[in-house]
Design a binder for these strands. Structure first.
Lengths: 193, 193
DNA sequence: ATAAGGCCGTGACCTATATCAACGGCATTT
DNA sequence: AAATGCCGTTGATATAGGTCACGGCCTTAT
């Protein structure tokens, strides 16, 4: 059950068997069916989750009821509303499952314990967050400077798996465009090809 | 010279005098005149910098020559192209001074040494990067879901100091709009008031 | 098997923002 | 004090993308 987590962590930091045994005791396995919530906007985020299987999305909903997807999280990635998890404040985001999924949950208290007892995990999460920041910065610049088509091409290039597994209207809301616009871009692209 | 850095670090983690004495040996003071570069696009980012005084901007330039500002960094904040600093790859961003500025530079080698010798700094940077990620995620969502006016109002609210110190056309390029549009938004706002 | 709803495509029209161009006001340089 | 850049403003026009409306095709539920 924990082999995959062990593998992913091991790709970034070195830890001993004993350290990982301690780590294991802190996680709570959880299965989520497609469409189930991990977190609803307005609730406090109790957990951060490692995705063993499946796919989740983190999104916010604006006044008009439109969804804006912050990220997709598939196998081997982590998912949470970082701010709410860290502060206990109500979340601005909703997280739900796009497929039946299997997660390993950790509470804030356990997470604090993990970072305190095993400094290598402090480093692990620093690196994880760092890479996430770099990716988010790039997406921000892309979002303010590129056309819809370029953003889509960039996504095709960087997350081809997502595009296979996620319905198109969610891709659109990840890119910050409407599903109609994405549909038209795709048909133009295939016409040109 | 290092009091300010000491104070800012102390707000997040606890460190001893000896630890900070070691820390001090790793930084290189540097003054930058207005308009001078800290980093040019295409170069590798040799340093991460703590801003003691002044204001810098990190931006990219698109094919049409338009600038897109990723962030402003004033006193007490850090500035670098994280990706280039970490990997040694050529930078996608340019960093320059908007005012005469005073910086404390640290190389990648020294930074690695600092994190290895003093685990509290591992935590310090984890938290720093974490907060930056939270802010960047919010800006991304705002960028894909809100009107130009709302984005401007949000900035007025969150970074009023920036708006005082930075020329308007740079605020526009931070928001991802043209200077003409920002000018019109401002005049509409003052007409309504 | 039929109904209901999610998902995708397409047309007609609308709107926020970009683009292009010109102008006036400050600073800075000569 | 004239000249040269920056900077912000304003007007006219263009355009990418949004909105609204409809229809067809699957999948899931009854």
């Amino acid at each position: 059950m924990f082999e995959f987590l062990r593998k992913k962590v091991g790709e970034t930091i070195a830890i001993t068997e004993e350290e990982f045994d301690f780590c294991k005791t802190l996680f709570i396995p959880k299965k989520l069916r497609k469409k189930q919530y991990l977190l609803q906007e307005g609730d406090a985020s109790a957990y951060t989750a490692f995705v063993e299987k499946g796919m989740l999305r983190t999104y916010s909903i604006d006044e008009k009821g439109n969804e804006h997807i912050l990220q997709f999280s598939s196998e081997g990635w982590w998912v949470s509303d970082l701010y709410s998890f860290l502060t206990g404040e109500p979340s601005l985001f909703t997280i739900d499952a796009l497929e039946d999924s299997e997660l390993l949950l950790i509470t804030k208290a356990s997470w604090d314990k993990l970072l305190d007892k095993i400094p290598a995990f402090e480093r692990y999460f620093r690196i994880l967050i760092q890479n996430n920041l770099i990716a988010t910065q790039r997406r921000l610049i892309s979002s303010i400077s590129e056309t819809a088509e370029k953003k889509y091409l960039k996504l095709l290039d960087s997350q081809p798996d997502c595009i296979q597994r996620v319905p198109q209207h969610m891709i659109a809301s990840y890119l910050g465009i409407t599903r109609e616009t994405l549909s038209r871009i795709r048909s133009q692209m295939s016409a040109r090809k």
